[in-house]
Design a binder for these strands. Sequence first.
DNA 1: GGCAAATCTGCAGCACCTGCACTTATACAC
DNA 2: GTGTATAAGTGCAGGTGCTGCAGATTTGCC
Lengths: 218, 218
Amino acid sequence: MQNFFLCTFLLSCAEMETIDTSVPRPGLRERKKQQTRETIERVALELFAERGFDETTIADIAEAADVSPRTIFSYFESKEDILFCQESTQFERLEQVLEQRPAGTTTADVLREFLSSLGPHDEAALLRKKVLMANPALGVRMRARFESLLTESIAKDLGGGADDIRSRLIAASMNAAFTTMREQLEAGGDAPNPEQVTQTLDEVLEFLRGGLAALDRS
Amino acid sequence: MQNFFLCTFLLSCAEMETIDTSVPRPGLRERKKQQTRETIERVALELFAERGFDETTIADIAEAADVSPRTIFSYFESKEDILFCQESTQFERLEQVLEQRPAGTTTADVLREFLSSLGPHDEAALLRKKVLMANPALGVRMRARFESLLTESIAKDLGGGADDIRSRLIAASMNAAFTTMREQLEAGGDAPNPEQVTQTLDEVLEFLRGGLAALDRS
DNA sequence: GGCAAATCTGCAGCACCTGCACTTATACAC
DNA sequence: GTGTATAAGTGCAGGTGCTGCAGATTTGCC
């Protein structure tokens, strides 16, 4: 039902992005803003992991983050968004990688490379995994986000619209693969096993190749 | 993103179920209960179609159905459930058909038969389609429900668990197919074109055969 | 008719989320 | 440094979904 394997996986390189060396100094206002945002994210995640998503109120987060409840909604669209924003960032990054891929490279290649290049889980990723495991409905919504992204991106690759049946089939298969990978690895421990990831991904790619070839023949 | 082609399609035979000839008479209390439920469903659907899902409040529905707002929640778990309950019923029916299918028949065969046996859209189905078209998020959630059902059923067919990658790939591909069918047929008019449905479904089956064969070879 | 059970209802209340006006903090020009 | 414009933070009122609870109403049955 969920896809938080990928999501927690993606999170592993999120930390690197917070330090931006290209800009000299963002200014106090901007720094404080960023700090506030990160504080909210951090304490919210801790509370979610500790007592559950539904059991944590906006008031709780506000108090723990030492801000007004109203302030939270100027940073995040919704309570759910506090949990999903980092995944969204990573989805955008993946989208960027997909768009900028060299000619001749398939979306599948990029995905494989993207997954392989990521490091092990960090603290936040583990907490997030815990939250999502305790609340399946959250995972469903996250997975829907991911599939939309995949479908659009793959449709671009193929040069057709998002309603192209091939795009959908590929995106759906990919998404199924990620879900499967997550569940396979869930029992195995905290950190994903790269070997298993590669194997499952290869299976899916094999499946896709065979299926697409069959479509071409007909 | 959505799957309401199937959903509206499935609805077409919903009406038949409301008349139950096996039981002599359900009693006044039970009849009134059923009547209230149907009234709520009907007026809610009309309001959703007229002014949108988010723009319709529980109070609006309660007033139109001539019941207390509190009563609505004794019939439906949530506002969304008012819209989804009929689809859920049809999902259960499909599940039943899948479970009781003759040995040697594949899930794909059953699905194809199931889709082909349904009649044209009824009034409620058209309204529902309108509601879902105006609110993509609703369709995403509905689609997630359907995929879960498909995955479980197909997993049973294959004799493995729901975490079997083949089950997921097949279910995901099927779901992608339905989504595509809906979008293809959307522009074509109100009633689905059986010919196009068959064609798209056949394409997907071809895709699946090719993909699964490739998996077997490896 | 009278009792038991189911149903309906109103009310209070929690939680998410929003708009708006107001205060406070930062940035920038002088 | 001072003053002003801009942005961030806050408090408040309110809308909406949803729930628990207790009492009124309706139905089933003897």
